[in-house]
Design a protein around this nucleic acid. Structure first.
Ligand SMILES: [Zn+2]
Ligand SMILES: [Zn+2]
Ligand SMILES: [Zn+2]
Ligand SMILES: [Zn+2]
Lengths: 164, 164
DNA sequence: AATGTTACGTTATAATGTAACATTTTCCAT
DNA sequence: ATGGAAAATGTTACATTATAACGTAACATT
């Protein structure tokens, strides 16, 4: 197993989040342009709302915020989320029924999530060692992997520090 | 990384499932006896229904089957499931919102699940290599793991064989 | 018997997610 | 440019999953 260097994927509490948001929105535009996909106003707005921070956002929370501008119904949100998921621009955190923006849409969509139970922040990593090991294990009993969900709950470094 | 031998954790389609059921129920009784816990008729019945096969069972499916005997409501099922989860006798498959009996309640409750999209069968493994790797990765950025969800979707050996 | 504790019953409702169909907008070939 | 197909959105209704709140029953301890 090779050494894959891993810097802390958690964002510090005082990072400049506006930059995260802008980067994500720009990357989404670029992605959709490149593939001839339509990042419509609704989709763009939903993506923006998913990216309001690094904690997962619930579909009905997004819906409430859409309603502030104009009357909307659940399918509006779920359609936009489905599109964004499909394109790897957001991920669903299954254990929370909530959605989070993808850091790195271009590099494939199989990631692992570390979720801080204290601050709610989620860190996404796409670690080749983990994926390799899962594939190796699956191979041992003839299982062919199509999709992977790895969601790890616990306490992030910042929250552990401040808890003492 | 040591070699952990891994036999196929999937049950073949024609295995003697009555035995799985009996073993699980006996293990549950033993566990509850040992810890002074009450495996009441409702809890026992719900466990039995969770174990009707090796595919995850939905709460409202269990509820429907309880209703055949007597009028029941959602809290009845969810309370029983909560108890059984707490004791590691069943697991919730988060990506399916469904429940499955635990093969091996005594050895801790952190497992990985391999889910066949074709036959619905779920295999549970408790692989130390996977857990070790996740802990190692988490440690690299100061994350303290409290809970782990690893749910892998794909096609089991039997279904792959018959698909050709 | 009185008390505390755990489990269960019951009703209502919250939270999450889809089906189905009508309407509008966009795209693109003529 | 323009008509028709395809894609996206609007709208209503509904399905599914889960919990809150409150009361009662069963069981154990004193
Ligand atoms: Zn940020
Ligand atoms: Zn934290
Ligand atoms: Zn079996
Ligand atoms: Zn299968």
């Amino acid at each position: 197993m090779q050494k894959n260097k891993l810097k802390n994927p958690f964002k510090s509490a005082n990072h400049k989040h506006k930059k995260c948001l802008q980067t994500a929105l720009a990357a989404a535009k670029k992605h959709c342009d490149a593939f001839g996909l339509r990042l419509t106003p609704i989709r763009y707005r939903v993506l923006e709302l998913v990216w309001q921070n690094h904690a997962p956002v619930k579909a009905y929370n997004i819906l409430d915020q859409l309603k502030l501008a104009k009357s909307s119904a659940p399918p509006t949100v779920y359609r936009a989320l489905d599109f964004l998921k499909e394109e790897g621009l957001v991920h669903k955190i299954e254990s929370l029924n909530a959605y989070i923006g993808c850091d790195n849409p271009q590099e494939g969509h199989k990631s692992q999530f570390f979720i801080c139970d204290d601050c709610g922040t989620v860190a996404e990593i796409a670690d080749p060692d983990i994926r390799y090991l899962l594939r190796k294990k699956a191979h041992q009993f003839g299982f062919k992997i199509k999709d992977e969900m790895v969601e790890i709950k616990g306490h992030c470094q910042e929250c552990r520090g401040s808890a003492e």
